[in-house]
Amino acid sequence: MAKTIMIVDDSASMRQVVSIALKGAGYEVIEACDGKDALSKLTGVKIHLIVSDINMPVMDGITFVKAVKQLDHYKFTPIIMLTTEMEDDKKRAAKEAGAKAWVTKPFQPPILLAAIAKLVLP
């Protein structure tokens, strides 16, 4: 059974590239363009891992992570945050909110894939 990964990023191109890479590796992908959009899609589907950006309009990544941790059916989902080197404080905040893994931007798809594979193999 293929594992499903949700990618949350406001950049459509980013979602596209990551999505192609993930599908190529054998994952199912659900895309969302911000935290709110993502939350609305977290219902009735099995999600094995969430990859989320931090800086997003409407609902930022940290608020999103906090919200996920309140959802009965998704609260234990591993979350990889996409951070930049400069966002050390945000990284801390994301960690406290419940995201324990991260990938530093910019990255090549293989880097993200490797990080994901440690948490969920396809």
Partner: peptide, 13 residues
Amino acid sequence: LRNGMDPLSFIRY
């Protein structure tokens, strides 16, 4: 486990 860190995943990897 609560943090989404499933030991099995790491061992699989």
